[in-house]
Design a protein around this nucleic acid. Structure first.
Length: 573
RNA sequence: CGGGGCGUAGCUCAGUCUGGCUAGAGUGCCUGGUUCGGGACCAGGAGGCCGGAGGUUCGAAUCCUCUCGCCCCGACCA
């Protein structure tokens, strides 16, 4: 492909609105253009990358025995009502609000309902299972705040796969295969990634693993131990149980007048204790019932962990009115002593001695509170949000890293097959719900994540596997016939070997051509110039290295082919 | 959805506080010339409903009201 006949609108200006490096580079390299907040145009060069990624995903999914199909983006809302997810998705679900048929139509943010509908229509025997169906489709989610370019958008490409099984063992096997497949996909895309334990969230299900790429542009935080043995999403990262330091003397309870002093900070200052000597009592509404969560004064409740420990689907902070009703005191004076509602204590609360807590009486706190003695420790769990330096489950300190989710595998169980009656007959003729797994990959995010991982101050450094072209021939003296001939010859020779080549035939000075070459990041560059040809050589340079080889054209061609073939063979087994 | 910021040439931005000449610069683009290995130089040129609507005023990019859009922080998020 000749540059002059293609469309690569590069820019030297750094876009004012782009904060993430990948965002700025994608715009400058002419890969994308924003249409509105959260929707991007993929320009020709960017679209080539997207298709490369899709193709890798396809090959690996097919290799794993998954079967591709294609589902609509517009869904009848009835299917979503069957699983109760119109409410669960809330504002994220985009409804078409207009007339007639559109009133009952939503834009698909994911496709569990549709795939389950398909399976219940056709699958009725255990002999047809297991099966794994996938598609690559545009998803629509009304993200409240799109950001960081293509990393978080309202409209995005996703590969979503759904597996159906007759039993747990089969699900485990399918899940494991998908896990391995995801590793292969991300490896092939040249991504650095970390699989981490994740919460199952609104998807429901028993096990879930997120694949994260570490980048400052990310919006998730992973917590891992420095030995690399444990990594989890911050919202559900587990903590080692604390050891009980013991206590010489258990005080008895004393009431303290704390007029208008409700926050942990102000109370600790007023009373003269450390925040860690306090027990914070947070009141929630969990599945409609009040629930008290106890954490140490210097800790925060992890709503994700609390939800899981409590075994509830919905969890909301209680309103002041409810708090008054439940505790008998204004907000800021709740405490566990004498509280009648369900209480879950964090494991760190269980080992506090002589604590300070709210008195359940406005403007009063009590000190000398001892868990177990002054209130029952019926439910003790790990419900607090970790902070950096906390000790993880393998007794190693946790470190945090910002990251972006590029893939997610779930064991769903029977949530959808139950709700939508996707049943099969087993060997005994008994009707049972399919056991499901689901597996997603963000195609656009892979593209952005790859740039986040691979760039320098001059531009993108594409991994060969997803580069828009393998080779860029920079033809410097476009008015010199031998130079033009040589460049064209190299181009044709490589193309005839199935290699994707971009030929920069623009009549421009060398500076801008080299700058553009670095910016768009084609992995292999061959420079043809009058000066070089006079010495019988062209230049071969890899984007990820500063070395330049001056060698005869034939040798450059041979070496280029070698390089590409050896890269390809790394993943061909 | 709360808080903050910004909308002026394709892009990056001055000008707005303190209203007043033909609305500017750099870059990009077009013409011609000199150049030609890491974003050259000279000369000429095209390009704007100053986001939109209403208002104040003799006069509005500039002041007021409303509105739309975009970015950032937070909340939210398979």
């Amino acid at each position: 492909m000749k540059w002059t006949q293609f469309f690569i609108p590069t820019s030297r200006e750094i876009p004012a609105d782009a904060v993430a490096p990948s965002h700025a580079l994608m715009i400058r390299a002419g890969l994308i253009k924003q249409l509105v907040a959260g929707s991007y145009i993929y320009l020709p060069l960017g679209y080539r990358v997207l298709r490369k990624i899709e193709q890798i995903v396809r090959e690996e999914m097919n290799r794993a025995g998954a079967i591709e199909l294609f589902m609509p983006a517009m869904h009848p809302i009835e299917l979503w009502q069957e699983t109760g997810r119109v409410e669960a998705m809330g504002d994220t679900l985009i409804h078409l609000p207009d007339q007639d048929w559109r009133r009952g139509t939503v834009l698909g943010p994911t496709h569990e309902e549709i795939i389950t509908h398909i399976v219940r229509s056709y699958i009725n025997s255990y002999k047809q299972l297991p099966i794994n169906l996938y598609q690559i489709q545009t998803k629509f989610r009304d993200e409240k705040r799109p950001k960081s370019g293509v990393l978080r958008t309202r409209e995005f490409l996703m590969k979503d796969a759904y597996s159906f099984h007759t039993n747990i063992e089969s699900l485990d096997e399918g899940y494991r295969i998908m896990f391995d497949t995801y590793c292969r996909i991300f490896d092939r895309c040249g991504l650095k990634y970390t699989p981490i334990e994740a919460d199952t969230g609104a998807m429901g299900g028993s096990a879930s693993c997120e694949f994260m790429t570490v980048t400052d542009a990310g919006e998730d935080i992973l917590a891992r131990t420095s030995d690399g043995k444990y990594a989890a999403n911050l919202e559900c990262a587990k903590l080692a149980p604390p050891h009980d330091a013991g206590c010489d003397r258990l005080d008895s309870i004393v009431e303290v007048h704390t007029p208008g002093i409700g926050s942990v900070e102000s109370v600790s200052k007023f009373i003269g204790c450390r925040p860690s000597d306090m027990i914070k009592t947070m009141i929630f509404i969990a599945d409609g019932q009040p629930l008290a969560a106890l954490v140490r004064g210097d800790h925060e409740v992890s709503e994700t962990k609390l939800k899981k420990s409590a075994g509830v689907a919905s969890l909301l902070p209680a309103d002041p009115e409810t708090i008054r009703k439940v505790t008998g005191a204004n907000v800021g004076f709740a405490g566990p002593v004498g509280l009648k509602i369900r209480m879950i204590a964090d494991q760190f609360v269980a080992v506090i001695h002589n604590a300070v807590t709210g008195a359940n009486k406005t403007d009063y706190h009590i000190k000398g509170v001892n868990p177990g003695r002054d209130f029952a420790l019926k439910e003790v769990a790990d419900i607090r949000a970790p902070v950096e330096g906390d000790i993880g489950p393998n007794d190693q300190p946790l470190v945090f890293e910002k990251c972006i989710e590029i893939g997610h595998v779930f064991k769903l169980g029977t949530r959808y097959s139950d709700a939508m009656h996707a049943h099969f007959l087993d060997a005994e003729g008994k009707s049972r719900p399919c056991i499901m797994g689901c597996y997603g990959i963000g195609i656009n995010r892979i593209m952005a994540a790859a740039i986040e991982c691979h760039h320098d101050e001059n531009g993108i450094i594409w991994p060969l596997s997803i580069a828009p072209y393998h080779v860029l021939i920079t033809c410097l003296d476009t008015n010199d016939e031998p130079v033009v001939q040589t460049a064209a010859g190299i181009h044709d020779e490589l193309v005839s070997k199935g290699i994707e080549v971009l030929l920069d035939d623009r009549d421009a000075r060398p500076g801008p051509k080299f700058k553009d070459a670095d910016l768009i990041g084609i992995p292999i560059r061959i420079t043809v110039s009058k000066k070089g040809l006079a010495a019988g050589t062209v230049e071969l340079k890899y984007r990820d290295s500063a070395d330049v080889q001056k060698i005869p054209a034939e040798q450059a061609i041979a070496q280029t082919i070698d390089k590409i073939r050896s890269e390809e063979s790394r993943h061909s087994t």
